[in-house]
Design a protein around this nucleic acid. Structure first.
Lengths: 197, 197, 197, 197
DNA sequence: GATGAATGAGCTTTCATTCAT
DNA sequence: AATGAATGAAAGCTCATTCAT
């Protein structure tokens, strides 16, 4: 089991390095040698772990979706109101955007923008389903409880994701007047106001 | 027709063709010969109108921002409530996303995703300021009227832009269960609920 | 008409240079930069003339088949016996193998050996049909005249081509005890003996 | 079973697998991992048996030449006329081309085509001498008997090998109108007509 | 202004071979 | 003897940009 474990660890380290480079410099501006350099390995060897650059990108989005999904799942499992859940989701999202900005940026600048890369195998948001599913659960629970208005899920999902993504984009543009985390309460309030019954 | 006029018309036709190609196929996947082909002109000649591919991309975002800005300005000048304005903005946005999807996609898939292209000269959203300014006017008017809650502008802007962009993205992914225009009322309602006093 | 002519001439010069390199060094051992170097042009520019290395190889076999076909056509049109035609075909074949050995070698070492290169578009000897057709005419004429025995064309074609190709191969291996042209009479005699009524 | 015996058996299994892959897919298109995969062994381990890919190719041609040589030797040792021997050689050649096509193809598509691979150590047909020697014996016997005309051996060898190889090539191209074995009599007759006194 | 051949740098990917385990 | 991760050198091909015509 040792060998496979080592291989899995290396795979993850490649994904981590690529995630940062893709997010910071763009998918097309990041070359395989760039990634190899960062990891101090040879470019050829990367292909022992991922069959192509596109394949690597696809594994990263699945991985990232999983990480974010897990954070939301934990919130979903808490015994708190939907209003409180919204606040916590916004908070964790912004926290991640501060601590691991590459994760959020990967959604915005790699996944969302380079459709041709994800065409084959990630259609219909299948590669981000782990993340989307948790938001769906959050929403359905709130509707069941009578806390959230019953509307098309995508109306709610688009609000959540677009809004949070939009804020992170604005942060990246350097136009926000203060730290993004200070926006948490305002934004959570807005989202709740939009979704409540 | 004067020389400069002819040149301006040709410039715009280049921008229109590039807009479509960049939006549909991605900035990096669109080559200068692709654009030239579509216009039945030579690749070299393009450089008589735009000094580089990046420069072309920057002019397009300014142009697009202007077109969208004008649409919103017209709404801003109407003597109607903020609630009604929101509905009209949503409506016009979705209408454009149906009729000229390349304009909206340019924001999502070109501008948002290829920061390195817009680094030099479009920092701080300066290239989309025409569009942003109109939304700022809409928001300030609403606050002045007492219709909208007084909050940080970017909280409102992120909501508006992120939400609408997010919905168009979901449409592009083919996950929406019905035509995007049927979402207009729901979404306008959500936005108004989020922004009202 | 000047431009197109110049382009056609350059195309042919590329084919000629490639023909030599492919024949002498093998298809897979010849790189695009090798060809470009020989022509003192850039590798990229080659792709303005041929869309791929395989495409280039295919155009060369068609071209070569045409050249050889023309030589045989001239013999076919002479008013001489089949026995005499055989002698002349053998003679011209060996002459070419001395003066332009790369043409014969291209058949033997590139076309015949790298099937995967010619798979798409040259199936069923379609790319050497000009050459094969002339041999077919030679054979049919001889049969009609009553000089040659009526047998399956491919029995005759295989004899002709295999035999001549085999001799050139032996020459290339350096095992022939004397100059290949000294074999002309023997070989023509053998072929005639095999094909006569 | 002794160590060396086990090693010899494994060597032969490697040669057999490589023979098939090289013949079917081409020498340069067959990778060492391809061979290893087919044998369910590791790429590195192959190098415990053959010092390089080229070396492997050279051992295969010697091996193949031996196998074919043996078949002809048996015919040579029979007490039958040269005419009959020709028929049997043609027959066995086509039979092998049906049952173990990779052996014949190895001559045509690997040995004949990739001279650079066999340059060092197989010059002057030394690696196929076993096969060539048997044909030489066949020919000399026939001449001694007064059955075959006395001519340069290579005139006869080129005929034999070129003709048979050519027919197998035509078969591979799919242009033969019927099964190759139906050509046996025609071709044997042609060869005999060419070689008899 | 218009053309498109030409360049040159750079990209992803492949693969024979080595070597630590 | 066996593994397979690792290397490094190359290959085919792409493309923004230039420039002679």
């Amino acid at each position: 089991m040792k060998k496979e474990e080592r291989k899995a660890i290396k795979k993850e380290s490649i994904m981590q390095a690529s995630l940062e480079l893709f997010s910071n410099n763009g998918f097309h501006k990041t070359t395989i040698p760039d990634i190899a350099n960062k990891l101090k390995m040879s470019a050829g060897n990367l292909y022992n772990y991922f069959s192509s650059k596109n394949m690597l990108a696809k594994e990263i989005i699945r991985y990232t979706s999983g990480v974010l999904g897990k954070e939301i799942r934990e919130i979903n499992m808490m015994d708190i109101s939907s209003e409180e859940k919204i606040k916590r989701i916004v908070k964790i999202y912004f926290k991640i955007s501060q601590e691991k900005p590459e994760m959020i940026d990967y959604f915005l600048r790699v996944y969302l923008a380079n459709r041709e890369v994800f065409n084959d195998g990630c259609e219909g948001m299948i590669c981000v389903s782990e993340f989307m599913t948790e938001l769906m659960i959050f929403f359905d629970d709130g509707v069941s409880n009578g806390e959230l208005r019953n509307q098309d899920f995508f109306s709610a999902f688009g609000l959540f994701m677009g809004y949070l993504g939009g804020m992170v984009f604005l942060k990246g543009e350097g136009v926000l007047t203060s730290n993004i985390e200070t926006y948490t309460d305002d934004i959570a309030r807005n989202i709740y106001a939009a979704l409540r019954v």
